[in-house]
Design a protein around this nucleic acid. Sequence first.
DNA 1: GATGCCGTTCGGCATTGTCGACCGCCGTCC
DNA 2: GGACGGCGGTCGACAATGCCGAACGGCATC
Lengths: 254, 254
Amino acid sequence: MPGPIQSLSRAAAILRLLAGGERRLGLSEVATSLDLAKGTAHGILRTLQLEGFVEQDPESGRYQLGAELLRLGQSYLDVHELRARALVWADDLARATGEQVYLGVLHQRGVLIVHHVFRPDDSRQVLEVGSMQPLHGTALGKVLLAYDPVARGELEGAELEAYTPRTLTDLADLDAECALTRERGWAGAVEETWEGVASAAALIRDRRRNPVGAVGVSGAVERVCEAGFVRPELVASVRDAARSISRDLGAARF
Amino acid sequence: MPGPIQSLSRAAAILRLLAGGERRLGLSEVATSLDLAKGTAHGILRTLQLEGFVEQDPESGRYQLGAELLRLGQSYLDVHELRARALVWADDLARATGEQVYLGVLHQRGVLIVHHVFRPDDSRQVLEVGSMQPLHGTALGKVLLAYDPVARGELEGAELEAYTPRTLTDLADLDAECALTRERGWAGAVEETWEGVASAAALIRDRRRNPVGAVGVSGAVERVCEAGFVRPELVASVRDAARSISRDLGAARF
DNA sequence: GATGCCGTTCGGCATTGTCGACCGCCGTCC
DNA sequence: GGACGGCGGTCGACAATGCCGAACGGCATC
């Protein structure tokens, strides 16, 4: 059986390279970074540009990601069944808790946010759909680690980054936390990724009981926690939402 | 000079095909739709799957768009300078007008929404970032048609769809509307795409005075209009926002 | 003006992508 | 239960397509 199609893999590598930085890249930088001949990189970039995946600044000749990626990303959300079924429950959860709500799925080595509901007040908030969160420092991530062996396998041999002094960076500690998560049915994370922020999340299952994602709330630690622990009424709401979404996906009653 | 890289163009065609429907597609459907050999389509799909651009349902063997598109689409927004600079002004515009705000750019033959602020009330709203709007039936589209010859060129020879009885479907009528837009500096659209919905938009320029996008408001015709015309105080706010964003991009004062 | 860097183009060639044929599995029909 | 047809997937042959090094013209710097 043959391997992947080389030119496609190279195009994907170019897109990831452009996505990884904050500024536009020139052809020579792209070619050098990926160890490709300039002509090769140019052919790929020119085709990606024709298809809308890459745009070139006419003045500087530098390249950046193109608008077609945004359009296709939105199409991904439109056909994403979990998200479609979670929309209403997520809104209800934000209302019930007064905090912002995230819906995440496992993607490569992290949690991809596929839906995000703002905290229902007038504050300025930044939408995070399409962003990645770490598996090991967030409640969403811990839930996926606890129930999905594929997620746990992604961390094997990895060095866990310490975002705050409270981040669990030892795999044994993290495994113990996942066992606790499975025992009580939800995960919490208190100031493990951002100081001052706490969150709780619970698992979503599909109609065959497979883990397919997680839903959680996140907010200021002073509101989310009481005596250092996530408030029980928040946990109850999160678990209710996870059950409702799971049922909507066809999972049998717990 | 050689043409585009065939395998990349084929991969893009497969992604567009998957984006265009509401259900997952099988290998045979993909191959037949694009007139490719099954082995060829399979090789492309397998590579796209390895890279995260496509996902396969393990039970049915059918394919759908993959999560990496959402992540890259978000990265596109992160490096999109116009959007970055427009965020605060768009929030202010939603507050000042009480209506929802859209920021759009020309993409292929339509307007791509790159930012969307909800109407500041408690109603349920659907985020439309990443979605496409028609050039000929929306205020955003008319602004781009009026000022950007590339946009106007996209409509040459096209049949304009009538979304409502009020949609302009004759190119001459649309050109007259664009002339009016250039004359007064903003565009309006009253029940041209959706009945009951009206909108107004104004152009955003970059530091070289090139048209790079448009900002607009949209809402219920009863609120947005007065005696059949867009309310002047809404127009003033939209134009203020467009000027502020343009200035932030380095465009000289008007 | 000379130099170096850039994005772009070019022609040769070999390897990579493509194709038709085939495989095993599954669902449907008789 | 057996035959059939459709499916996603695999295989080997081959030629055309993708890749490469070299060259080009434009621009900025010294």
